[in-house]
Write a protein that binds this DNA or RNA. Structure first.
Lengths: 173, 173
DNA sequence: CGTGAAACATTAGCGGC
DNA sequence: GCCGCTAATGTTTCACG
């Protein structure tokens, strides 16, 4: 991972673009008191270094019919061969049978309802963030998809009652 | 909340902009097989209806020194007056003493490490997503800030070991 | 770091299906 | 109603001072 030094101006640019990713280079330049060309050079450098990963539009879930947000804790089966399999894969044996964990990760990537999935410390193996239309869709997703996955041992779900805060803007240290 | 009908083209536009929020209107128009002006009219309509909430740049947490991601479950004290207070506020008594919940929500909004906070079903009241530099910073945040907050009764933290998936793109139904 | 010029993008008005 | 053309205006981008 390319280390990269960020000065005060870089951080200001990042915080501006975290708040509005469509600002023109001219506007950003003005806000950081630079002329357009050095500002663009900085932005390009931040993009190429991967500090800026992506520009996206954020949608309102309610306005597109996704009224229910759930966080689902998942525990996987511990196959005794799991370790052996991950080793095999790590060593490049691409057609070894997948370990439960790798298999679960691959499946998660394909489920559109699941917008985030992290392997976590603690008694539950994974934490999933799931956007669905309503409780009906949620229970269908659970029954037909998540609980049917062979690697899944058990799950615990909680549902969002109220959004207090949710931002993609990271604190700039 | 303004209801809005989305046809196939609208959904295609949304999915394109969820993947790249900086595409020019011309490029979007080309991908949905429309000429620039009707495409722009649709995008403007989606923005004004609030379907598109915001355009942002997404940063890589690791590249800006935020190496630790934690999810923190928080349980608040149940003051017996809590209900009375929330009623007072709901009725517009702006200078009533804040309920523990409202007070906690206000604090959360000011803590930059906390990028998301939801009131949840289940035994824990809130779920927080917290980005920090390392375990040192995390424990400092806990001791000096979160646990010191008068409304907080107890907390349970888990740490992300591995990111399997994390997208801001919502499934388009 | 800033200037300037070419290439490109945005957006409003108007006519057509 | 929604689409597409045109044309004026604004923006991005890069070579060069």
């Amino acid at each position: 991972m390319t280390k990269i030094a960020l000065d005060k101006t870089d951080r200001k640019i990042l915080s501006i673009l975290q708040a509005d990713g469509r600002l023109s280079n001219q506007d950003v330049a003005e806000q950081v008191a630079l002329s357009p060309s050095p500002c663009l050079r900085r932005i390009k450098r931040l993009e190429e270094a991967g500090v800026i990963r992506q520009y996206v539009a954020l949608l309102d879930p309610d306005k597109i019919g996704l009224g229910l947000l759930a966080y689902v804790n998942v525990r996987l089966e511990k196959h005794s061969e799991a370790a052996a399999h991950s080793n095999a894969r790590a060593l490049g044996a691409a057609n070894a049978p997948p370990s439960p964990r790798a298999d679960f990760a691959d499946s998660v990537a394909q489920w559109p309802e699941v917008v985030a999935c992290y392997a976590m410390t603690g008694e539950m193996d994974y934490l999933l963030r799931v956007h669905v239309e309503d409780m009906d869709h949620f229970s269908r997703f659970m029954m037909a998809t998540l609980l049917r996955h062979p690697a899944v041992l058990d799950v615990k779900s909680s549902f969002a009652l109220q959004r207090i805060k949710d931002t993609t803007a990271l604190p700039l240290v």
